[in-house]
Design a protein around this nucleic acid. Sequence first.
DNA 1: GTTGCGGCTTGACGCAAATCAAACGCGAAA
DNA 2: TTTCGCGTTTGATTTGCGTCAAGCCGCAAC
Lengths: 238, 238
Amino acid sequence: MGQHCDSRPLLTPDDWATLKRSAILRDLSDTDLAALLDPRGVRSLERGHLLFQQGDPARALFLVLGGQIKLSRINPGGDEAVVHIYGAGESFAEAAMFLGGRYPVAAEAIVPSRVMSIESEALRRKVAERPEIAFAMMASMSRHLKVLVDQIERMKLLSADQRVAEFLLGLGAGKAGAVTVSLPHEKSLIAKQLGMKPATFSRAIARIRELGVEVNGNQARIGDTAALRAFVNRSAED
Amino acid sequence: MGQHCDSRPLLTPDDWATLKRSAILRDLSDTDLAALLDPRGVRSLERGHLLFQQGDPARALFLVLGGQIKLSRINPGGDEAVVHIYGAGESFAEAAMFLGGRYPVAAEAIVPSRVMSIESEALRRKVAERPEIAFAMMASMSRHLKVLVDQIERMKLLSADQRVAEFLLGLGAGKAGAVTVSLPHEKSLIAKQLGMKPATFSRAIARIRELGVEVNGNQARIGDTAALRAFVNRSAED
DNA sequence: GTTGCGGCTTGACGCAAATCAAACGCGAAA
DNA sequence: TTTCGCGTTTGATTTGCGTCAAGCCGCAAC
């Protein structure tokens, strides 16, 4: 397993750097890291390629070496709910290792990507002998939990316009004043992430133009971060 | 801290039984358990009492000994999004221990409740010496992650009627045929959990009556579980 | 150049859920 | 008993978002 991958199943120095920066591995020594990682676990994925499907037996967690991996839930009718999109240095599917062995979501590369898988069993053994990995994993899962709680809050309390505004502010990474950011994916995918239709996303952008937001192609300019923040925090009844 | 609680700050035999059944502690021996738990961590809470507020420094995780604890997110405008409600034997706020030390949600007793707190530091030390606790915690966090992913999927893909139907099915715990269940909270709180208004919840129940659902007070009868399941799985376009 | 295609925008329309508000239990207290 | 308060139901109305569909733009293939 993990052998039949595409082009370059090798760990480049860049990959090593990415791995050593990742939240769940950064506390490990080079020796530990080498013991844990199996270079055969590296996989290259073309755009649109599925890493695993919803319901597949969960045998590994993954680290993104490069590209973007989309986790989503697909219901029997074929509708898709995007749970999250992970980039280089992030890990996902830690949780699946514990959940009766099935992935509850599907993972798809939305751009050409490279990921490294770590077999559950190898990891479990390593955790048993080095508890600090456990802390790192729990921290990583905690972050995922918070991301999901945030998402639920947004879905329940914010309008489509506010969700778009908040998404743009998030791209600006908390900077103040006027910011220019580039959209990380196609607009239709962002729309799905935010739980709305492409048409609604488009209209939302048109409406928040009057709050100082300009979007051209995949470049977005926020004229006044504070004003936009205020709009997001504005509650329903005023 | 933990000392100034109300009536009976003691661990009853019932409490012990609850703790030993709980997911994150069930793998521990009595000796380990005794070493980890501090009876002074037990707190009794009246209905409406806050265990902690959103933004409070996170110094402990909690186990519910009895009652119900609601985790929710409140935005600056005062609107509330209910994240989850925990009952006896469940644990929460594991994640907060790792997240820069602030609770991202508020915790409130919605009925008279008893909880046991476990100090982060004590737990961290215990985890370092007994990795199996780490596995139990990760399993627990995994379950929380799945709960949240499910919730996101429901919010994004299901109508109000379907969410209510699925909620009732969940109360029936997967039983088939005709089931009678009791609603675990006030209807207005269930509505909030499902991300809708009380009025909408009431109307949803009225509408799914024709699918064989009868609700009187806090008793709900599902006439045909399979039919209701089919309704929930029905996707938008048909 | 032309054609075709995929993603984006825009408009017209319908519907599901929110809103506002009134009325209806129903249990607790007087 | 009456009264109060709170949660629930119900009705009338508004609105936000989805749906359907047409048109637009940029781009690659021809």
